[in-house]
Amino acid sequence: MAKEEAGNGLVFHPMDQFQIKTLFGDGPVHWYSFTNVTLWMGLTLLAIFALLVLGTSRRAMIPNRIQSVGELAYGFIYRMIEDVAGKDGVRYFPHIMTLFMFIVFSNFLGLLPMAFTTTSHIAVTGVLAMGVFLSVTILGFAKHGLGFLSVFWISSAPLPLRPILALIEVISYFVRPLSHSIRLAGNMMAGHAVIKVFAAFAAVLAISPFAIVAITAIYALEVLVAFIQAYVFAILTCVYLKDALHPHH
């Protein structure tokens, strides 16, 4: 949504922050080129490494701040999987922890000024969501064979309703990766774009105080959203995992 209104000097570039650029040289973006995506994913990796590996390197019985944050994240995700997916879901704890830590750190790092938000791209969240969808579906069929199809057949519903419900269930099952990925990307993109729009308004003297207050408020909301979206992504992954492990309602 690039619109230049040269008349009053308002310049809106809310989508420019999502552009992917090569960092060395001006060539086209090949699959192997070192882009800002690479840079910010690498920073995400470093941050997680610092929190979960360097932070816990003392293996202290009484944890310091960084170690207790790492343990908090561990316990948070562990309990969530146990509550939602059940005891046998704990086997997939490292996978879900990987997803959650990647998303939450991408979201938070993307909130830094001048930063690039990797999770605001449908390509990234789409791969994550498709990965979850495919692995959960394959897991369901591998564990239960064709019995996995009973996830669509709600045996607690009255018999005449079941085919209709099955149709709805099938549709909602295949819409899952779409909503799963667009939810995260859409939230990130919308929040950052709104901040950028208010930043453009801040250039106008008359409304700049309002714009700056609004940026601050939206930024606070975005910090909340950054965490909640990562949490929602992880918890929905757990819900899908539960369906694969226990397809019988």
């Binding site: 949504m1 969530m80 509550d83 939602v84 819409v175 779409l178 909503s179 667009i182 939810r183 859409g186 919308a190 909640i228 949490y231 929602v232 918890i235 929905l236 819900v239």
Partner: peptide
């Protein structure tokens, strides 16, 4: 306290449909 996870799941499902309309708007725009 035991039901906050369920609440978030419900929020996610309710939000999904709004996300679809957002997606439609974006597709129409771009």
């Amino acid at each position: 306290t035991g039901q906050t996870a369920t609440m978030f799941i419900g929020i996610a499902f309710a939000e999904a449909l709004g996300i679809f309309s957002f997606l439609v708007a974006l597709l129409l725009m771009f």
